[in-house]
């Protein structure tokens, strides 16, 4: 990977603002001061980790297999799905060998986390974490269970749409991105205060996974495609030196 000289500037009106009062926790967790822009990003921002030597387990990207009830191992309950997509940059260039991580609730909307006290039960055969590297052409894939929606204390009756948290590194820490994939057609999407932190409805579309029947496995699993776009890498033609 050659170090780019610059990345396309992040459009911070496209991304959600720090302060988005409909999402209550953002009120005390958003800076009041302006961000300080680095006019000349350095190697500190333009480089980032390469995870090709991270040793992955055989089921790290297969959530149907990577958490087992030791007493009575079986398959998790819920809609079996393949989640796949391509990581490209803003110029359409594939991003190979980059780390994609994901985590999610189970089919009932319950997370396997000490802090989640929702009454929907845990699934003894479901953990909810996956990771993989994109291949030579920028593709990644997971196998999992479609997560359920769940209630959370924001408004009096606020529910998250079904979503999978997706984390991608890209070629540098400048391209680092954590987002959430939502499922096309879910009526909870437009009424979710976290989705509504985005001002631009087109930006919301970048977070919606699409049902892909062609990639589904008959009598086995439906497929959902979620492509990720990270900041475009630029070479600089003219420098001061």
């Amino acid at each position: 990977m050659t170090t780019p000289r610059r990345f396309v500037e992040r459009d911070r009106n496209w991304h959600p603002p720090a302060y988005a009062p409909g999402y209550k926790t953002s009120i005390p967790r958003s800076p009041n001061q302006a961000l300080v822009s680095l006019q000349n990003p350095s190697i500190s921002e333009l480089s980032g980790p390469d995870f090709r030597k991270l040793r992955m387990g055989p089921h790290d990207n297969d959530l149907l297999m990577n958490f087992r009830d030791e007493a009575s191992p079986g398959l998790p309950v819920g809609e079996r799905i393949i989640l796949f997509g391509r990581v490209v940059d803003q110029f359409g260039k594939p991003v190979p060998h980059t780390l994609v991580e994901m985590w999610q609730a189970n089919a009932g909307g319950r997370y396997r986390h000490g802090k989640d006290r929702y009454l929907a039960p845990l699934d003894p055969n479901f953990g909810g974490v996956g990771r993989c590297l994109t291949d030579d052409d920028g593709w990644y894939r997971f196998r999992t269970i479609k997560p359920g929606p769940y209630p959370w204390p924001n408004g009096i009756n606020t529910w998250r749409p079904a979503h999978i948290h997706v984390s991608v590194m890209g070629p540098a820490i400048s391209t680092r991105l954590i987002t959430q994939m939502y499922f096309e057609g879910d009526p909870l999407i437009p009424i979710c205060p976290i989705v509504q932190t985005l001002k631009d409805s087109e930006a919301v579309q970048t977070m919606i996974g699409r049902l892909d029947m062609a990639r589904s496995r008959p009598m086995d699993a439906l497929a959902w495609r979620f492509d990720l776009v990270v900041r475009g890498a630029l070479q600089t033609y003219f420098e001061n030196q």
Binding site: V8, R10, D11, W14, H15, P16, Y23, S26, V88, D89, Q90, F91, G92, E101, M102, W103, A105, Y111, R112, H113, K115, D116, G127, G128, V129, H165, S167, L177, I178, T179, Q180, I194, V195, T197, L198, E202, A203, V204, T206, M207, L228, V229, V230, R231, G232
Partner: peptide, 20 residues
């Protein structure tokens, strides 16, 4: 250009994915 995928909060259970 393509638009960058929009960011979302990592949420309260980020540890499941990134800090097991």
């Amino acid at each position: 250009m393509l638009r960058e995928t929009a960011s979302q909060t990592a949420g309260p259970y980020v540890h499941i994915g990134l800090a097991l």
